[in-house]
């Protein structure tokens, strides 16, 4: 085991320092070291999107990024999406549209959808489906998720 490394990153708008073994994924450190368990592990090989976070404004699978690569980056997780007293429109529309059943994929979907709406606030249904193809949901059949994202576009 290699020595742990100090990593400095901006995490959900807070400058943060943490220790990481070089082999640890960002997902593992977020969950196990920083207790930010809102980011979920579904497959650990980049095929489900449950671990989606934003790095410098772009979505990535945190299971496929080493924590040490976060050095100097701005990381946003599901815990950093809402404001103190107000949900993000995506979070609100997911609630209103019943876009979650078990809810385990929900954080990944919301972060991924935010990545889309931040750059393409008028994405159509096909584009939303395309953008979210890297996020698996097994409960909903995606219908209500897609509707929730399209609804949030109107609220933004």
């Amino acid at each position: 085991m290699a020595k742990k490394v100090i990593v400095q990153a901006n995490l959900n708008d807070n400058d943060t320092e943490f220790l990481s073994e070089p082999r640890q994924s960002l997902l593992e450190v977020l969950r196990e070291t920083l207790a930010l368990t809102g980011t979920k592990e579904g497959c650990n090989d980049g095929n489900c999107g449950a671990c989606t976070v934003m790095v410098d404004g772009r979505i990535v699978n945190s299971c496929l990024m080493l924590a040490v690569e976060a050095e100097g980056k701005k990381i946003t997780t599901i815990e950093g999406i809402a404001q103190a007293d107000k949900l993000h429109p995506l979070q609100q529309s997911f609630l209103e549209e019943a876009a979650l059943q078990c809810g385990i994929c929900t954080p990944g979907f919301i972060v991924a959808a935010k990545g889309l709406l931040d750059r393409e606030p008028k994405a159509d249904e096909h584009r939303v489906r395309h953008w979210l193809a890297g996020n698996l949901c097994r409960c909903t059949g995606y219908d209500k998720i897609i509707r929730a994202v399209l609804k949030a576009e109107k609220e933004l």
Binding site: A35, G38, T77, E79, L87, A98, G103, T106
Partner: peptide, 23 residues
């Protein structure tokens, strides 16, 4: 009717604790 589910907020904010979130 279609009220918002009670456990929804914790699930859209990442606060809900699933099996793997036990520390």
């Amino acid at each position: 009717t279609r009220p918002v589910r009670h456990d929804g907020l914790e699930k859209v904010t990442g606060k809900a604790k699933y099996g793997a979130d036990v520390i």
